[in-house]
């Protein structure tokens, strides 16, 4: 499949650009987007910490002779969240103007390096999500634990999805052109 090259914009980062969301929020669109992104990021980590606290405070039934929990949240469950948070940090530390390769930053090597780090950040986030699904399947679903234990795995997957959503929200909110820049570019 060959794509038409005629209207290709070399400043574009993705082949399919992010949709230009217009919620009619006016000048507060960027502020609201940043607030939503921060809330999603905190929500992601509290979702997972909920599972960790539940696992740590698991009460066995009173007639059980010993600790009857078949599985606990261990360090393995923390790894995907750590990877996703690292990827979030890497993606958001990159200067957006440098990725676009505009005229002010004509150094081609800097653009190439910025895109490499962007790729590493997104790979970290995708790796975190894939790792959380792996843990859900291998640690919780395959041994067919009861539902209150598979919740640990689902919380882990939700954490990584929420971190990705937070990164996307922050990216879209910050790449909205402000009125000041818009009037300059005309």
């Amino acid at each position: 499949m060959s794509l038409p090259r005629s209207n290709y914009d070399p400043r574009r980062v993705c082949l399919n650009p992010f949709p230009n969301l217009d919620f009619h929020l006016g000048k507060y669109r960027r502020t609201i987007g940043v607030y939503i992104a921060g809330g999603l990021f905190a929500l992601a980590h509290w979702l997972f910490l909920d599972a960790a606290v539940l696992s740590s405070h698991y009460h066995p039934p009173p007639d059980a002779p010993y600790d009857s929990a078949p599985v606990h949240v261990t360090f393995v469950d923390w790894v995907p969240g750590i990877l996703s948070a690292l990827g979030f940090l890497v993606v958001n530390l990159i200067d957006k103007d440098r990725i676009k390769g505009e005229e002010a930053y004509a150094d081609a090597r800097a653009v190439w390096r910025a895109r490499l780090f962007l790729f590493i950040g997104f790979a970290l986030m995708a790796g975190g999500l894939a790792g959380s699904v792996t843990i859900l399947v291998l640690k919780y679903v395959v041994p067919s634990y009861p539902e209150r234990f598979t919740y640990y795995g689902y919380a882990n997957v939700s954490q990584n999805i929420a971190i990705m959503l937070s990164a996307v929200t922050l990216w879209v909110a910050q790449s909205v052109p402000s009125d000041y820049e818009y009037s300059l570019s005309i």
Partner: peptide, 26 residues
């Protein structure tokens, strides 16, 4: 933006913390 991000995180933390404590029956 960083300030707004951290503020939003702290507010969500304030709402989520008691919910989690109640969920774990603490």
């Amino acid at each position: 933006d960083l300030g707004r991000f951290i503020t939003s995180m702290v507010v969500i933390t304030g709402f989520a913390f008691p919910l989690i404590l109640a969920h774990a029956e603490i």
